[in-house]
Amino acid sequence: MRRLVLAVLAMLAFTGAGLAQSYPAHPITIIVPFSAGGPSDAMARVLGERMKQSLGEVLLIENVTGAGGSIGVGRAVRSAPDGYTVSFGHLGTHVANGAIYKLGYDLVADLEPVVLLPSNPMIIVSKNAVPAKSLKELLDWLKSRPQPPTAGTAGAGSGSHIAGLYFENVSGIKLQYVPYRGTGPALNDLVAGQIDIIVDQTSNSINQVRAGNIRAYAVTDSKRVENAKDVPTVDEAGLPGFHMTLWSGLWVPKGTPKEIIAKLNAAAVEALNDPAVQKQLENLGLQMPPKDQLTPEALGAWQKAEIAKWWPMIKAANVKVD
């Protein structure tokens, strides 16, 4: 029996090594758990386009929406651990959802980290019909509403939802959340005046701000965003300490060979070091991770630290999923 077990293990090791050596042999799918046109989709497409130069295969973007991104992540978790299905996600999908949803999978144990991706602070934006011209005026306007003002989100546990909860904690203002299948469609409704505000990713809203279709009040950082220097920080604008950065990353299913993870990591790092890619991402208001944080181990450690930071606040808010 012992010889049989050893033989099976040896065969599996040989198969895994062979798989890694020939990888990739056909297109790779990156599952983005939000709708097309949103900030996650935009980043994934920029990276995927550049990574195919290193990997020699096309990276297809599949948008799998619903339940704050948990459906898309679940699809990746249940995929074969062969490197052909990659999970794109962020603070909402790979941290917050574990405190909100009954996932049926473990965000740490059932996924292998690949690489930490660019991040961006959130930005407080409103429809143009809101009369406030500064953050202090916006806070006064929100407080004066007879009913809680409406705030768009990409669903319970999404980055925009977490930012809204944090905003409520810091400002004392109660919001009425309106969930969408991504902040792309939420932003469309903000431009149309159907909702009042979004605490959104800067990369998602900045072009609509520049076009004058919505109004920006502050970014949730201690320093101004390079491509939106006219937008003050929350410290400057009157809501000090409301700091939040939405980071993203790539993961693969548990059991994916280390050699394949290394190939995906190398391709992503090469893409992030490409000046043309950096320019595209910086134009979206995204900030590059430090070079020493681009290893799979660094993403794994960061994800665990973020779980320890955010889960207590989310659970204290008693977030319910309808």
Results as ranks from 00 to 15, higher is better:
residue 268 A to Q: 07
residue 268 A to E: 07
residue 268 A to M: 11
residue 269 V to Y: 07
residue 269 V to A: 06
residue 270 E to P: 03
residue 270 E to D: 15
residue 270 E to F: 04
residue 270 E to G: 15
residue 270 E to Q: 15
residue 270 E to H: 13
residue 271 A to C: 09
residue 271 A to L: 10
residue 271 A to K: 10
residue 271 A to H: 10
residue 271 A to T: 10
residue 272 L to I: 11
residue 272 L to K: 11
residue 272 L to Y: 10
residue 272 L to T: 11
residue 272 L to M: 15
residue 272 L to W: 12
residue 273 N to L: 09
residue 273 N to P: 05
residue 273 N to H: 13
residue 273 N to F: 07
residue 273 N to E: 13
residue 275 P to F: 05
residue 275 P to A: 05
residue 275 P to G: 03
residue 275 P to H: 03
residue 276 A to N: 13
residue 276 A to K: 15
residue 276 A to C: 01
residue 277 V to G: 10
residue 277 V to Y: 11
residue 277 V to F: 12
residue 277 V to K: 12
residue 277 V to E: 12
residue 278 Q to G: 02
residue 278 Q to I: 08
residue 278 Q to E: 10
residue 279 K to I: 01
residue 280 Q to F: 03
residue 280 Q to K: 15
residue 280 Q to G: 02
residue 280 Q to W: 05
residue 281 L to R: 04
residue 281 L to H: 04
residue 281 L to P: 07
residue 281 L to K: 06
residue 281 L to E: 05
residue 281 L to W: 04
residue 282 E to G: 11
residue 282 E to R: 14
residue 282 E to P: 00
residue 282 E to W: 00
residue 283 N to K: 07
residue 283 N to I: 00
residue 284 L to F: 11
residue 284 L to Q: 14
residue 284 L to D: 03
residue 285 G to M: 01
residue 285 G to W: 00
residue 285 G to E: 00
residue 285 G to F: 01
residue 286 L to I: 01
residue 286 L to D: 00
residue 286 L to Y: 05
residue 287 Q to I: 15
residue 288 M to H: 03
residue 288 M to E: 02
residue 289 P to D: 02
residue 289 P to H: 02
residue 289 P to L: 02
residue 289 P to G: 01
residue 289 P to Q: 05
residue 290 P to Y: 08
residue 290 P to N: 13
residue 290 P to F: 07
residue 291 K to Y: 00
residue 291 K to M: 06
residue 291 K to S: 14
residue 291 K to P: 01
residue 291 K to G: 01
residue 291 K to N: 08
residue 292 D to G: 00
residue 292 D to W: 02
residue 293 Q to G: 00
residue 293 Q to I: 00
residue 293 Q to Y: 02
residue 294 L to F: 06
residue 294 L to P: 07
residue 295 T to L: 04
residue 295 T to G: 02
residue 296 P to F: 03
residue 296 P to W: 03
residue 297 E to C: 02
residue 297 E to I: 08
residue 297 E to M: 08
residue 297 E to H: 10
residue 297 E to R: 13
residue 298 A to K: 13
residue 298 A to S: 15
residue 298 A to G: 07
residue 298 A to D: 08
residue 298 A to P: 11
residue 298 A to F: 08
residue 299 L to H: 08
residue 299 L to M: 14
residue 299 L to S: 08
residue 299 L to N: 10
residue 299 L to W: 12
residue 300 G to I: 08
residue 300 G to E: 08
residue 300 G to D: 09
residue 300 G to F: 11
residue 301 A to Y: 04
residue 301 A to H: 13
residue 301 A to V: 15
residue 301 A to P: 07
